[in-house]
Structures are given as structure tokens and as C-alpha cells.
Design a protein around this nucleic acid. Structure first.
Length: 575
DNA sequence: TACTGGTGCGCG
DNA sequence: AAAGCGCGCACCAGTA
């Protein structure tokens, strides 16, 4: 563990009588000065301060401040995002007295800006002028910052929590910058892919030609020209009528049966999915000016992973990766981490054997070479089963073999599961804790422990306990992997900002990135950087260097590496 | 005419 | 009908 770099000072932003005011704090967090640059001059003033010294900006909520700065061409290096950090600190098991944080009013709010997406009916119920998001008043913001600083200082591990809140806050900056930059998206290439797979685009309300053809073949095999293919209950009945006695209409179950309707139906479902999820309607709605701009939601998942709202940024299908295309003179650096979660597990459990299997090679191959299992596929199934809590099937059978060879790693996830089953809280490497069990969960366990409990009560309580155990088992690994990824992003962001601008034309990403390499996509363990072609090699070095730094930041000298699959190309197509 | 819950499938 | 975690989204059906 390396402790977080201490900051020279903080500048806290908040509103006073509706006007932005900056409170300048010294290194002991004492207020030394208040500045009111005025709404119109705010961005320019922040840019001046950024250029002249190292500060950490403190604000209630990045979406309330940063998009406007970016639109003015101003980026900042570091911030403390009070809304995101509040959520971490109020639940962290490392924070001993979180009562004051829990009592603070308004800091559990959804991020600012959600009201724009709210439906008109919902909006009418509320006062339309009511602000969303956490408190914006300078005094409220200063008070919350003081509470958080105290919570960290009094915690059982201030060093780790400082790393976590710095990483989380950097993520808030990255998320806003990703939206401002957008992912370069070639609408014509997208259209070609759709036409290749689905057939010609329908002119009026009909289906694309290949999809219509598949539908026709399905209906012929069903012997019913009017059969409904999009209603699950109706389709199920149609299948039963022709003797296909499936219990669901899911692809994997259909595939287990020999029947002439299976092949065309699976084809129809594939095409239908592509059309409804990422068809021409999606293209028109989400791609504008050659960019796909999803809304990223940092910390949107309990484990600390990001969520996404709108556009399905977390599920861009592989089929469409070819539509991600660099601007002329630019290129993409596409990188993902190979087997991030098991590597994180090896490091946090200090399992030297698992780290050895991972070092300098494909982790699953390393497990095969250790003799635990025979094939790479078995290694993958066994390890995923261990991290997810598989108990049956091939995965459940293979897990015990890993337990013998990697006892430390397996003990960590097994312990997390035990704690969860008993209603306890588990915590990631840097200090994000799982939510406490719901009142319904606790009531169920209590009920089953009474003498008059029925067998059904006990069965249900046991099932819920095991469900929660699988959640906490995975929480520690998924959450720590998310922390590694944030550290990677944050470090990379800094490295990219220090690269020189290039002579290529500026892309239509707004003024803020101009000719600079910039992050264009992030998804759990994968990043895409859009860069002037002349900087591609330097960017690739930065991406690798940031991964190495992230590993050291979290795990110090523990011998674990985080190898990347990295390519430099015009498109993000996976080979 | 909303809404909610179930189903299915895309992503890690 | 997944086994085994975490998501978001589209669509349909039943309900208010």
C-alpha cells in the first residue's frame, strides 16, 4: 500500500444566494479566503487556478458542475466528489462513527440532472423548479466536507479510504469527460452491418428482409401463418402445438431440441434482438455528429462498478464493434485486462500460488499447468464458479480442486460468503462495504429460528442466506476489481493529459479535447482511447504504464501482474 | 393510459 | 432452464 499524495489545498465550490462562491482552504482545511468570480467568469477563473497550482476542487456532485466547465473548454486535474464519497463513507466498515454522515440531510440524493429524463407526469407531481441532486449551498457543502474529512481521519485505515475517495472522484471526472468526448461512431458502417445481418431496411413499418424471411420460415414450421413470435406465452403455446415441449422459449433450451422450427426461430430471435436493441432507431436516437454519448453512472452498482443510463453503453454488442471508428488522422487504442477479477483475488488474498499461475501468461493456462485441472475451459469454469459461488454442475464439481491448490484465495471468497450468509457486511480492499441485509431478509432469518418455524420457513431462510452469501462472495472480488479499474483510469487520465497536442484536425468532440488523446469508452475492465495517430504508441505505453501503476497503488510489492490485450487500430472490432 | 413484473438477452 | 455474480433494455401481459 502506498499512501495517497497529500494535497496542497482544497477549494470548495458552492452557491451563495444562487451565485457560485469558492472557499479556499489551507492544508489544515481552514478557510482562508472566499472568492466570488461570478457565474460568467467561473470557468475562466477555475482554469487560471488550475494552471497555476495544485488544488483539489470540492463540490457536491460532478454532474452539477463539470459538464458546464467542459463545455467551456476547461478540465480540472482532481476533485473530491461529495455525493459519491458520502455513499462510500456512510457504509464503510472502516469508518467507526458514521452517525453524523448518516444523519446529514440530502446527501443520499440521486445525481443532479435526473429530472431532465423524468416523464412529464412525474414531473408535474413535483415542483418543477425543485432542484435535484445533493445540496448546493456553500455552507452545506463545507459542512459535509468537514464531516467526510473527520470520518476518514478517524477511520481504522485513512490511507486506504483516501485512495478510494480519490479514485472514486477521479471516476466522476472521467465519466463527465467520456460523455463530452463521446465514442467515435461511424453511422454508415453501422448501417452496413445492420443491412448485412438483417437485410434491407424496411420502408414502412415492416420487417427487414432477412428477418421477414426467418419469420416466414418459423411460421411455416409452426403451421400457423398468423403465429405471434414476439409474445413469449403465445410462442410457447405454438411450440407445444407442434410437439416441441419446451418450458421456456430461451435460446439455449431451444437449441437442445431437434425440430425443424428450432434453427429459424433462433435465427429470428438473434435478428430481432439486434433490430430492437441496436437497430436504426437506436442509431438515430443515440448517435449524433459521429459520436455515441452514453450517460455513465459512476458508483451506480453497489460493488462500485459503474452503471450506465440510456443507450445501453454496457451492452454494445460485439457485432457492432466495427462501427466504432476513429476520425481521419486519428486512431483507437483498445485495451482490456486479461482475467482481472482472479488476479485481484490472488493479490488481495496474498495467494502466491495463484499469482504464480497468473504471472506473465494466461491465468487459466497457468492453472492447467499447476495440475489442478486438465483443460483451460475447466480452469475458467472452476475459477468463475469459485468467485460466483457455484455449487452444482461441472463448475461446482471443479471448485474443490481449486480449493486444494489455492487455499488462500479460496478461503477469502469462502469467508466472504460465510459472513454474508450470517447477515454480516463485507468490505473491498480499499474499504467499500456491502449493504446490510434488508429488513425482509433479517425477518426471514429470525422467523426460521423460532421454535414454531415451519419447514417452508427454514427452506426459504436457507435459500435467502445462500443467495446473500453468493452476493457477498462476489462483492469483495468485483468491488476490488472496480477499484483497480478506477485507479487505472485515473492514472491513465493524468498520463494522457501530459501528452502534447498533435497536428491533426480537431474532431467534433467539443473544444475541450481538441487535438489531445482522450478516453472515449470504459467498461469495467476495458478502455478505448481516441488519439491522433502520431501518438498511438505513446498512448499504448501510457495505457500499460497506468495498469502497472494501478497494481502497485493497490497491492504494493505483491507479485501480481495485470497484462493487457491491447491493439492500435481504426476500429474497435475484436479479432 | 400508465404502472409493474416476467421473460429473454446483450455486456463485464 | 441455467449451473453461478453484477448490470440495462425491449417487449409483452396483467392490473389499476
Amino acid at each position: 500500500m502506498v499512501s495517497a499524495k497529500t494535497e496542497s489545498s482544497w477549494i470548495v465550490l458552492g452557491l451563495v444566494s444562487g451565485e457560485p462562491v469558492a472557499a479556499v482552504l489551507d492544508t489544515s482545511a481552514h478557510e482562508v479566503e472566499r472568492i466570488s468570480p461570478g457565474q460568467d467568469a467561473l470557468a475562466g477563473w477555475i482554469a487560471e487556478v488550475e494552471a497555476s497550482r495544485t488544488v483539489r476542487w470540492v463540490w457536491n456532485d460532478a454532474p452539477a458542475w463539470y459538464p458546464a466547465l467542459l463545455a467551456s473548454g476547461v478540465r480540472i486535474a482532481r476533485c473530491h466528489d461529495l455525493r459519491l464519497c458520502h455513499a462510500i463513507l456512510r457504509d464503510s466498515a472502516l469508518v467507526e462513527g458514521a452517525e453524523e454522515l448518516r444523519a446529514a440531510v440530502g446527501w443520499d440524493a440521486a445525481p443532479a440532472g435526473d429530472a431532465r429524463d423524468a416523464s412529464p407526469t412525474l414531473f408535474d407531481l413535483e415542483d418543477a423548479a425543485e432542484p435535484t441532486g445533493p445540496p448546493t449551498g456553500l455552507d452545506d457543502v463545507l459542512a459535509e466536507f468537514a464531516r467526510q474529512q473527520a470520518a476518514i481521519a478517524d477511520s481504522s485505515d485513512p490511507g486506504r479510504l483516501r485512495l478510494l475517495i480519490a479514485a472514486e472522484s477521479a471516476g466522476a471526472l472521467v465519466a463527465a469527460e467520456l460523455r463530452a468526448a463521446g465514442l467515435p461512431w461511424d453511422a454508415a458502417a453501422h448501417d452496413r452491418i445492420l443491412t448485412d445481418i438483417l437485410g434491407s431496411r424496411p420502408t414502412a413499418g415492416g420487417l427487414p428482409t432477412r428477418m421477414q424471411d426467418a419469420a416466414d420460415r418459423v411460421r411455416r414450421e409452426l403451421g400457423d401463418p398468423g403465429a405471434s413470435l414476439d409474445s413469449q406465452p403465445k410462442l410457447l403455446r405454438s411450440l407445444h402445438r407442434v410437439g416441441l415441449l419446451v418450458e421456456s422459449t430461451s435460446r439455449w433450451e431451444l437449441a437442445e431440441h431437434e425440430h425443424p422450427v428450432v434453427a429459424p426461430l433462433i435465427e429470428y430471435k438473434k435478428l430481432s434482438r439486434l433490430l430492437s436493441a441496436n437497430g436504426w432507431t437506436w442509431l438515430e436516437e443515440w448517435v449524433d455528429d459521429g459520436r455515441f454519448r452514453p450517460v455513465y453512472v459512476p458508483g451506480g452498482v453497489v460493488t462500485g462498478r459503474w452503471a450506465a443510463a440510456g443507450g445501453g453503453a454496457l451492452q454494445v454488442p460485439r457485432q457492432l464493434r466495427g462501427a466504432v471508428r476513429a476520425d481521419p488522422g486519428w486512431t483507437l487504442v483498445v485495451a482490456d485486462v486479461a482475467q482481472l477479477e482472479p488476479r485481484v483475488l490472488a493479490a488481495m488474498s496474498r495467494d502466491e500460488q495463484l499469482a504464480e499461475a497468473a504471472r506473465g501468461r494466461d491465468l487459466y493456462t497457468g492453472i492447467v499447468e499447476s495440475g489442478a485441472v486438465e483443460t483451460r475451459q475447466q480452469a475458467k469454469i472452476a475459477l468463475l464458479g469459485a468467485m460466483y459461488g457455484a455449487t452444482t454442475g461441472e463448475s461446482g464439481r471443479l471448485v474443490p480442486r481449486l480449493r486444494r491448490i489455492y487455499p488462500r484465495a479460496m478461503a477469502l471468497v469462502d469467508q466472504a460468503a460465510r459472513v454474508g450468509e450470517q447477515g454480516g457486511v463485507v468490505t473491498t480492499w480499499l474499504g467499500r462495504s456491502s449493504p446490510a441485509p434488508s429488513s425482509g431478509w433479517r425477518a426471514t432469518q429470525l422467523q426460521a429460528s423460532q421454535v414454531e418455524a415451519s419447514g417452508a420457513d427454514e427452506t426459504r431462510a436457507r435459500r435467502w442466506a445462500r443467495d446473500r452469501g453468493r452476493f457477498t462472495r462476489n462483492f469483495v472480488v468485483q468491488g476490488t476489481a472496480a477499484e483497480w479499474a478506477l485507479a487505472w483510469l485515473a492514472d491513465l487520465r493524468g498520463r494522457l493529459a501530459s501528452l502534447p497536442a498533435a497536428g491533426v484536425p480537431a474532431p467534433p468532440s467539443g473544444p475541450v479535447f481538441g487535438r489531445m488523446p482522450h478516453l472515449a469508452f470504459f467498461l469495467h475492465d476495458e478502455i478505448i482511447v481516441h488519439t491522433p495517430a502520431e501518438h498511438a504508441d505513446a498512448v499504448a505505453d501510457a495505457v500499460r504504464g497506468a495498469a502497472a501503476s494501478a497494481g502497485r497503488l493497490l497491492f504494493g510489492d505483491f507479485p501480481i501482474d495485470f497484462p493487457l490485450d491491447l491493439k492500435i487500430a481504426q476500429t474497435a472490432e475484436k479479432s
